[in-house]
Amino acid sequence: MAKADAPDLLNHEGLRIAERDPVNDEYTYGRGKDELRPIEIEAGVLNRADGSAYLEWGENKVLAATYGPRECHPRRDQDPAEAVVRVTYNMAPFSVSDRTRPGPSRRDREIGKVTSEALEPAVLTQLYPGAAIDVFIEIIEAEAGTRCAGLTAASVSMADAGIPMKGLVTSCAAGKIEDDVVLDLSREEDFHGEADLPIAVVPKTGDVVLLQMDGDLSADEFDEAIDKAYEACYDIHDLQKQALVDRYQGSATNGGNR
């Protein structure tokens, strides 16, 4: 796509796109540089899974489900010393503007792998040698930052399943648009921006357990982006905790937001 088609990512007040009218291609501005898109999380939304979570983040709509600890098939995946955490990340065919073929793509498989490696360090895996903890992330609708949304929801679904963990895992991205480092890129910003840097953090320990980056950043910008995303993870962590509190204090109604 030609850069010429790009909308202004910042308005004259330095505010970012807050909303888009898809039919008329018109934009409304109003989001600050360090402002997250709206996030809503609900725990315990599915019947069959041992634990589940539904998350909306901007226009992203994500479901996560956890099964286990359960017997690990195939046996070659087993670890005799500890449980394995397996993540399947999948996008619904209608989740993006050009329909995708059903089933995980190469991109989906990579995200599944790095997500499992981000979730696993928080889990007390040594309690369940030989077992599998299976996490399924379904992207129902995608905007930008689906891996962060999926990971954040996945961690809540694991807690909802009662998986013993050191803490939740939280994910957020920062990026660069119009030469500015900003938090949590939207669709237009991801598409026309200069860089994207998603990370995941275990807020309890402070460890960064996922880091990916593409685009073009100076060393200083890189540091700034990590700082912004890192700090935001602690805000999102509060939302994750609240979703679990709501679920187990009985004030949540099943499927309230959907």
Binding site: P93, F94, S97, I140, E141, G255, R258
Partner: peptide, 26 residues
């Protein structure tokens, strides 16, 4: 109309069965 990216969409619950349905046109 639960999925903006789709031309048509529906979210159905039939007892404990839950599906998202999407219509995409190319």
């Amino acid at each position: 109309d639960v999925i903006n990216q789709a031309e048509g969409s529906a979210h159905v619950r039939l007892g404990g069965t839950e599906v998202y349905c999407g219509v995409k046109m190319e």
